[in-house]
Design a protein around this nucleic acid. Structure first.
Lengths: 339, 339
DNA sequence: ACTGGCACTCTGTCCGTGGGAGTGCCAGCA
DNA sequence: TGCTGGCACTCCCACGGACAGAGTGCCAGT
């Protein structure tokens, strides 16, 4: 009973603060929410909440503001994900349906997410690690130069140009292509490298060195961490609800440029069914101490191939943002499965 | 003589304002520059410069600030491009030399440019329009599904998955691949579409419909304007020297997200030898009224395949920025030519 | 356990003042 | 004619005091 009301007060504080962006006081609280008690009572509850670290006051005798811990409790126990309206769902679907290839899917997704949430959207490219090889193509460009093209089942194409030490015949190349594909096609990228080891020995003596070089290039392509790419949109939204200083926006912009950081923050969201919320200091990054990240894995099936999410001030509308992120991830998964 | 000194005063004002970010007064001018005359004389010159619209004062009895027109004159007649130090050149070269493919070149370039100029860097992907077809590859993925891959001489790879109405034999596919390449290889992308028209008729009757579909996909890929892609870096630098409001940073961030706008601004810089400077209102974009853009074309040879540049406050160090932009463009050109 | 009342604290704002920087103008000088 | 020193004027901005308002904590009463 008592506990219940305190939680109710915390919920009210979070909601009010999110919508007004101003510290909320006891009087305003009872006016805007029908709590059925007087401001004085609320004050006692607030004192207790502050004691426990869920809220804080910026200055003595100003209203209260939720702390990271307060938001955490709010997200975990006091709110539920808010589903999108059917109009929003339809808009998302039609927008994503127009995509023509993987790049387009990703680029549309990130812009969409930024627009829907009015925050900064981050989308990770489908990871190569968990995907499988669909096809390897060897394309001669010049007598001693060829292009190694790797196509994955997620629609991703990686290529690398390679110079071979000896001229290699069309026939030998076709042979090699067939062998490589026999070995690699359908397998996960991580499984392929050990299987490539024997190929040079199976080749004619005069081609052996070239085949080694080609295999090396393919290995490199497989191993390359460039797959770990992220795309951003909506950075202008940072300035949207930031009435304050550029002092606060700059570290965030800097963090956004460090894609490694973003990948770390997104990377742990591997389950397409579970939304992940990181609040303020939970991000373990100085510049992001007052921003929160809502992320979720996405993928064609049950397993996530990558993650996406949004980043905004800790004082964000968590239920709405979570709903949007989840919905977009689902639709992207459907699109990927369908193509 | 008189004219000369006035120009000298303008140059001094621009230089001082760029380094201090504060309106500059007559007294400070004579102290920092050896102009050989008294403040009173400078005041007369300043009054004349203001009359002609080269400088302005934010408030009565504050110092003077250059106008867009003033910067324009400064760039056109009062300054020369400042070459980079040899250390900087070496750093650029080694950094760019490490790139493994086109994506990597572009991504390194944009980060490098942002770091060197400490401003926002923009790099346009090498345009498909002006490049030539190196190879077209048709890769079967499933009985009735294949991937059309287009490889250009700039190293770019475009792909598109296509569903064909009839099963197409391996042999027929090889035949088609050979024909397509015979027709397209080595030609500019814009020249290819008319040449593809006859291909379906040359195919066996049972394959005709499929071939049409494949050609259509290829045409789409050729025509696609997705080539018009830009990459950004250094947005955090916007907040660097902006002691003022987010009010001023937000429209810029918004403009940066509209890649179409950026392309228009970059797009006219087609000559790799000519630096282009757009100052303030010359950008014809409300949000960029107080930012300048320094851009230049880059490419493997004499002809530019794309453009790159930086964007910063009108009060930027033009000589230094222009030097950095030109140097980076040259090195990128060399890299592209060499690979 | 809740409430009303009360004194206290702190912020943000308004206003008036003064210092400082910079200007424009003018008379004098080479 | 062009430059200079001097001077009065304007305007910004930083400082400081006063004040209203909001919010709190505490306490006594129900």
């Amino acid at each position: 009973m008592l506990e219940d009301r305190r939680l109710e007060v915390l919920r009210a504080i979070v909601e009010d603060y999110v919508s007004t962006h101003e510290p909320v006081g006891s009087k305003a609280l009872v006016e805007r929410h029908s709590l059925g008690v007087s401001p004085a009572t609320i004050r006692n509850d607030m004192a207790a909440l502050e004691e426990e670290g869920y809220i804080a006051q910026p200055h003595t005798s100003a209203g209260r503001v939720p702390t990271d811990k307060g938001y955490r409790l709010f997200v975990d126990r006091l709110s539920s994900v808010k589903p999108l309206s059917s109009a929003e769902r339809r808009a998302i679907q039609t927008f994503l349906d127009g995509a023509v290839d993987l790049d387009d899917v990703v680029s549309r997704t990130v812009r969409l997410l930024a627009q829907v949430t009015r925050q900064v959207a981050v989308v990770q490219y489908p990871s190569l690690v968990r995907s499988t090889v669909r096809h390897v193509e060897l394309v001669p460009l010049a007598p001693q130069r060829l292009l190694v093209v790797l196509i994955t089942d997620t629609g991703r194409v990686e290529q690398r140009s390679v110079e071979v030490p000896e001229v290699i015949s069309e026939h030998a190349l076709a042979d090699l292509r067939a062998k490589v594909n026999a070995v690699a096609a359908g397998r996960r990228l991580s499984e392929v490298p050990p299987l490539l080891g024997d190929l040079p020995e199976g080749a004619a003596p005069e081609d052996r060195r070239s085949v080694s070089v080609i295999c090396a290039a393919l290995l490199e392509t497989l191993a390359e961490q460039r797959e770990e790419r992220v795309v951003l949109a909506g950075t202008a939204n940072l300035a949207r609800f930031t009435p304050d200083f550029p002092q606060t926006i700059r570290p965030v912009l800097e963090a956004l440029e460090e894609h490694v950081v973003l990948l770390r923050l997104l990377g742990e969201a591997n389950d397409p069914a579970t939304l992940r919320v990181r609040i303020g200091h939970e991000n373990d990054h100085e510049g992001l101490a007052s921003t929160s990240i809502v992320s979720v894995g996405y993928g064609a099936g049950d397993e996530a191939v990558a993650a996406l999410g949004v980043l905004g001030p800790t004082r964000m509308d968590y239920p709405g943002t979570m709903g949007a992120v989840r919905a977009v991830a689902r639709y992207v998964g459907q699109i990927l499965a369908g193509s």
